[in-house]
Computed example of a mutant assay.
Amino acid sequence: MTVTTTVPTLTDGVVTLRAHSLDDADAIVDQSRDPESLRWTTVPRPYTREHAVGFIEGNLAAWGEAGAKRSWAIEWTDDGGDARYGGTIDLRPGAAASVGELGFGLHPDARGRGLMSRAVRLVVRHAFATPVWGVPVRRVHWRAIVGNWGSRRAAWAAGFTFHGTLPGSHPDPDGGPDALDTWMGSITPGDPLSPQTPWLAATPAEGERVRLRPWRIEDIDAVEVRNDPEHWMPSRSIIRRENFATWVHNRQERMAEGTGIDWCVADVESDRALGGITVFSRGGPITDVAELGYQFFPSARGRGAAKEAARLAVAHALAPTSEGGLGLRRLVAETAADNEASNAVLRSVGFVEFGREHAVDRLADGGWGDGLYWELLPGGTTP
């Protein structure tokens, strides 16, 4: 294998990947002491300039070692026209010489500018075009601690396919006794270096009584105990105080996967959470058909909040993509036949019942109830 100590410079005209320099040391210290870096990485603590110098020298030396990682400094131009150190990205040897593992981190000043996804594309292109460790690289993996949305979004924007969550697979950066879960993804030659699925967002909308907005962790204070019949909604979907953080995280993951949008329905005057409404798909990313679902806390019922929230969500779902909507062709819903309030909400926004499944819901008294199927097409037409 031919080993070189020359670090290839990669650029797309906005981001440049180059060899690390001792001039980067102070910026590396700043980055490594930043709370977000400490939260998601296992950098030494406390981080000193000596650590930065060792990091730089180690990265440069690795280019002369067969089978070692390949690291670049990320350089960008700030608003004043000055070239600045923006972070580090490296390609590490994986399970075989034909597999690489991506690692990266940004300086705080470089975040929120789309720079990392550009850097990822540059490294991926280089990996697939160059026998990095003596043979062509056929797959590049990405991994991040669950909750590191910045890392996930960079990988998503660069075309990585998300493979799921691996429990207990990363040491706790804070030194805790428990291993943390990680997200995992990869990309192969020929895959487009662009998002493979939509990343949906809870776009705010406001009516006379309620507003739709993203959920916040502090909304837990508004969560109320529900006493609805068990067959009205799957237990895993119910908002509860005891699992609220997990519930919100799962909804954020659905949006990142393009399989659903979940809004908090809040009082338009107090902004207090009244319940939630969702547009989602049961079979992969939303395309042209999706399902409507909703739930409201007991104190929020009987005031028209659910009907107005449904109207706002339906409007977003059916609005053309050119206007920021989902551009859906059809919406569907499922309810229990005896859930009169929920059925009234669907009728109020134009849904039409198109089917009934008999004796499908187990009732508290041991009997069986029917389930209803609903649909809504733009213009209120039905096949």
Rank of each mutant, 00 (worst) to 15 (best):
T2A: 12
V3F: 04
T4V: 06
T6Q: 13
L10V: 05
V15M: 11
T16K: 00
A19S: 07
S21V: 02
A25Q: 00
D26I: 06
D34Y: 00
S37F: 12
P44R: 09
Y47S: 11
Y47Q: 10
R49W: 14
E50R: 13
N59T: 12
L60E: 09
A62D: 07
G64K: 01
A66V: 05
G67C: 08
A68L: 02
R70M: 05
S71Y: 00
I74W: 03
E75I: 01
T77A: 07
G80I: 02
D82R: 04
R84L: 07
T88E: 12
T88R: 09
I89E: 14
R92T: 13
P93F: 13
G100H: 09
P108R: 09
A110S: 03
G114I: 02
L115D: 06
A119R: 00
A119T: 00
A127E: 03
F128D: 05
T130L: 06
A144R: 07
V146G: 06
G150A: 15
R153G: 13
W156N: 01
A158M: 05
A158S: 13
H163V: 09
T165M: 08
P173N: 02
D178P: 00
A179Q: 05
A179W: 00
D181C: 04
T182F: 04
M184I: 15
M184Y: 12
S186H: 10
T188V: 15
P192C: 13
L193C: 10
P198V: 08
T203I: 10
R213I: 02
E218M: 02
E218C: 01
D219T: 03
V223K: 03
V225C: 03
P229Q: 04
H231K: 02
R236W: 09
T246K: 15
T246H: 14
H249E: 14
E253G: 15
T259K: 08
G260V: 07
G260N: 02
I261K: 10
A266H: 07
A273P: 00
L274I: 00
G276H: 01
I277E: 05
I277F: 04
R282W: 02
I286G: 06
D288E: 13
P298R: 11
G302Y: 09
R303G: 08
K307A: 15
E308C: 03
A310D: 01
R311Q: 08
V314E: 04
H316I: 05
A319G: 06
P320V: 01
T321L: 10
S322H: 05
G325D: 10
G325W: 03
L328V: 08
A333I: 03
A333R: 03
E334K: 13
T335C: 09
D338H: 11
N343M: 06
L346A: 11
F351G: 08
V352T: 15
R356Q: 07
E357R: 15
H358N: 10
A359T: 07
D361E: 13
A364Q: 12
G369C: 02
D370R: 07
L377E: 15
P378E: 08
P378F: 02
P378L: 07
P378Q: 06
G379Q: 10
